[in-house]
Write a protein that binds this DNA or RNA. Structure first.
Lengths: 100, 100
DNA sequence: TTATATTAGCCAAATATTGACAAGCCATAA
DNA sequence: TTATGGCTTGTCAATATTTGGCTAATATAA
């Protein structure tokens, strides 16, 4: 599930209009529309706000928001999957170092 | 293993100087130095060239080059690992669609 | 039709990235 | 000591990318 789709779903289930959420994020409606369609990427800070406004789980939203960016970064590479696995290992390694 | 470290390793094993590789990449030595130290990111095209010049496996280099970018993108997020898994699923899914 | 909601396209402002340069550091040689 | 060679640091301008807003077009509803 793409980030924008999820936002749209949540927005519609709460019967909110794009312009209402756009106003809360202090951007205009066309910009919000683009975020929903994935034509523009939301800022991290906007994700946090949206989670509040839509009463959604911040962590879930952040995860798909981040995953989408990762996907965009690697999608055209043949070894995308390999690269993700390498990156995952590095994350694990960094975490284990941090916690000691 | 970071991309820059790997390049440095390969370069030293071939007894090449930064300025020689820099010249081949048509950048100056300071820039090359920064790439080795991860202060600047190499372009995809430069990775391909480096693989040739260093007689290294292109795919391996591209993988760590890409993985590093992914890592940089997610490293500060608590749910980095989750996000990577989601992205990996999307890659798999896209691949399965493409092949049908 | 009219009114409202959403989307498309374009442009300028803001931000990030890139590459080049000059100057510095460090080790070794003379 | 000074000189040299290899590498690194810091700064700056050029370039590219992203961001946001505006207007106009399109859709959806009443």
């Amino acid at each position: 599930m793409r980030f924008g789709e999820r936002i749209k779903e949540l927005r519609e289930s709460k019967k909110l209009l794009q312009r209402q959420l756009a106003a809360s994020l202090e951007i205009d409606t066309p910009m919000f529309s683009k975020i929903e369609r994935g034509e523009r990427r939301a800022k991290r800070e906007q994700v946090l706000l949206l989670a509040k406004l839509l009463e959604a789980d911040v962590n879930d939203l952040l995860t798909i928001w981040l995953a989408e960016q990762v996907y965009e970064l690697v999608k055209d590479e043949d070894n995308a999957a390999q690269a993700l696995r390498v990156a995952e290992e590095e994350i694990k390694y960094a975490k284990s170092k941090k916690s000691k």
